[in-house]
């Protein structure tokens, strides 16, 4: 064609790239500004950060080996040596709770992440391909939702055992379905836009359409729901451990500590209350943080508060 061709000089290119970076920075700053516009979100973020740090630096923080049994020193009250006292076997409760943070966060975050990834992909497939694929996936979803998650998880644990890894996979299995359904709905609404048709009509392959057009435009509700379901997953893990079918003993888990402590509720109330409080604080913090992410990502989803 007869247009004169101008190669953009490298100066202009550099300038443009700098401009884009500037824009990105501004976007990120805006994200955090909106996210933390409510003070309570800051509290949630601080709480979450606190537990994350505890989990990372557990070996430095713990005062004892969490699994070391000190003979004859069982069920002690808090003291300088044992900050939260000792448990029924004479293990240091403080150290056990510190290490328990690792279990809770790791299983919670990892399994939610995995579930979201798988659910997102399957959800997009269901929306994009429709027909049989959609029908089969949705029927499986419905089946999974019809059976209580606790029951499914307990069955799977009976089959796979209670290692950390299998715990992650089992919890993830319970979480896939929700994100699948959400992603499918979200992707369907994005697909009604002409730009998806335009991409299809210009011959773009399916995976690229999914990745380039549908995913970025439909993923924000999924991120929001994932950030809010981390807390739920942690609760689930604690619940399983409480029932004695969670992480194998003697690995410290908040749920199993609470389970052990329940017998001593009257005589040693702190034994049970401390892990309960930790669990409550962590989950509330995570939920508040999730609310903040929701506000920042999608203002239309914001609640009345």
């Amino acid at each position: 064609m007869n247009m004169n061709k101008i190669t953009p000089s490298s100066d202009a290119d550099v300038l443009k790239r700098a401009k884009r970076r500037e824009q990105k920075k501004r976007d990120i700053r805006r994200f955090f500004r909106v996210m933390f516009s409510r003070k309570i979100v800051v509290v949630g973020a601080a709480g979450t950060l606190f537990f994350v740090l505890v989990a990372i630096f557990a070996p430095l923080i713990a005062t004892h080996d969490p699994n070391y049994i000190q003979n004859g020193k069982n069920l002690l009250d808090p003291s300088a040596q044992f900050l939260f006292g000792t448990d029924m076997y004479g293990r240091d409760l403080f150290s056990r709770i510190v290490y328990g943070t690792r279990v809770s966060l790791l299983t919670g975050v990892l399994s939610t992440l995995l579930a979201t990834l798988i659910g997102t992909f399957l959800g997009m497939l269901a929306a994009y391909l429709g027909g049989v694929v959609d029908m089969v996936l949705m029927r499986i979803c419905e089946m999974m939702r019809a059976i209580p998650q606790l029951v499914i998880s307990m069955t799977l644990i009976a089959a796979f055992g209670g290692s950390m890894m299998s715990m992650v996979i089992i919890l993830c299995f319970g979480g896939i379905w929700n994100s699948l359904r959400m992603m499918r709905a979200s992707a369907l609404s994005v697909m009604s836009n002409d730009y998806v048709l335009a991409a299809k009509l210009s011959g773009e392959p399916m995976l690229k359409i999914l990745y380039k057009h549908i995913l970025p435009n439909s993923v924000s509700p999924i991120i929001v729901s994932a950030s809010q379901s981390v807390g739920f997953t942690i609760l689930m893990e604690s619940g399983l451990s409480f029932l004695g079918v969670g992480i194998k003993v003697p690995t410290a888990s908040w749920g199993s500590i609470i389970n052990e402590a329940r017998v001593y509720l009257i005589t040693n109330p702190l034994y049970a209350l401390i892990p309960c409080a930790c669990l409550a604080v962590l989950i509330i913090s995570l939920n508040l943080l999730g609310d903040g992410i929701r506000d920042a990502l999608d203002p239309t989803l914001r609640g009345e508060s």
């Binding site: 836009n193 002409d194 730009y195 048709l197 335009a198 991409a199 009509l201 380039k212 970025p216 435009n217």
Partner: peptide
């Protein structure tokens, strides 16, 4: 190729 009716829904808002 094709030109679409709605200039708002025919362009990917994130590209």
């Amino acid at each position: 190729t094709m030109i679409f009716q709605d200039p708002f829904s025919s362009l990917d808002p994130r590209q």
